[in-house]
Amino acid sequence: MKIKHIIVLFIVVLNLAACSNGENPKEYLGEIYSIGLDSIMQKDDNLSSDLKYIAIDMSNFDELKEKDKNEILSFFKEKYKV
């Protein structure tokens, strides 16, 4: 049981150390959202087969700048050819 606690503690400490490298995650929001949305598309082959259109409602993406929104749209245009 002690080993499990040590492993969990090690993982938590490792994650905290990795997250404190001085990078601002808000600079990469377009990329983060693109990866997240794309992972949903990959969950079901029926979602990503024979596509003509992809609708992404960005009305609640308050943190995103226009540059980030365009990055997301460009990602999907290039990857899915829509």
Results as ranks from 00 to 15, higher is better:
residue 27 E to Y: 11
residue 60 N to A: 05
residue 34 S to I: 05
residue 60 N to D: 10
residue 33 Y to L: 03
residue 62 D to Q: 11
residue 70 N to H: 11
residue 24 N to W: 01
residue 34 S to T: 11
residue 2 K to T: 12
residue 25 P to I: 07
residue 71 E to D: 03
residue 29 L to W: 08
residue 14 L to R: 07
residue 32 I to P: 00
residue 14 L to D: 09
residue 3 I to W: 09
residue 63 E to F: 08
residue 26 K to R: 15
residue 14 L to A: 13
residue 54 I to L: 12
residue 5 H to K: 13
residue 39 S to T: 08
residue 19 C to A: 10
residue 68 D to T: 04
residue 69 K to V: 06
residue 31 E to P: 01
residue 6 I to V: 08
residue 29 L to A: 05
residue 73 L to D: 02
residue 81 K to F: 07
residue 62 D to G: 09
residue 18 A to V: 10
residue 60 N to C: 02
residue 9 L to E: 02
residue 24 N to S: 10
residue 56 I to V: 14
residue 5 H to I: 13
residue 29 L to Q: 05
residue 32 I to D: 07
residue 14 L to G: 10
residue 38 D to Q: 06
residue 1 M to A: 08
residue 61 F to W: 08
residue 30 G to M: 01
residue 13 V to G: 02
residue 7 I to G: 04
residue 71 E to P: 01
residue 44 D to F: 02
residue 56 I to F: 03
residue 38 D to E: 15
residue 32 I to W: 02
residue 79 K to T: 15
residue 79 K to A: 09
residue 79 K to M: 10
residue 51 L to M: 04
residue 77 K to V: 06
residue 33 Y to I: 02
residue 64 L to D: 05
residue 29 L to G: 00
residue 58 M to R: 00
residue 77 K to H: 11
residue 65 K to C: 05
residue 73 L to M: 11
residue 52 K to L: 05
residue 76 F to V: 07
residue 76 F to Q: 05
residue 48 S to F: 03
residue 80 Y to P: 03
residue 28 Y to S: 10
residue 39 S to C: 06
residue 24 N to F: 04
residue 77 K to G: 03
residue 39 S to L: 02
residue 32 I to N: 06
residue 6 I to Q: 07
residue 5 H to S: 12
residue 68 D to P: 00
residue 29 L to R: 09
residue 21 N to W: 14
residue 82 V to M: 10
residue 78 E to D: 14
residue 62 D to H: 13
residue 24 N to Y: 06
residue 70 N to I: 02
residue 27 E to S: 13
residue 75 F to D: 06
residue 49 S to W: 09
residue 7 I to H: 06
residue 11 I to K: 02
residue 66 E to P: 00
residue 19 C to H: 03
residue 79 K to F: 03
residue 29 L to H: 02
residue 61 F to R: 01
residue 67 K to E: 15
residue 45 D to F: 09
residue 72 I to W: 01
residue 12 V to D: 14
residue 49 S to Q: 12
residue 26 K to Q: 15
residue 48 S to N: 09
residue 39 S to H: 10
residue 24 N to I: 07
residue 78 E to Y: 08
residue 23 E to F: 14
residue 11 I to M: 15
residue 35 I to K: 11
residue 13 V to P: 00
residue 11 I to Y: 07
residue 59 S to F: 00
residue 8 V to A: 14
residue 8 V to S: 13
residue 58 M to W: 00
residue 37 L to Y: 12
residue 73 L to N: 04
residue 9 L to G: 12
residue 44 D to R: 05
residue 45 D to M: 09
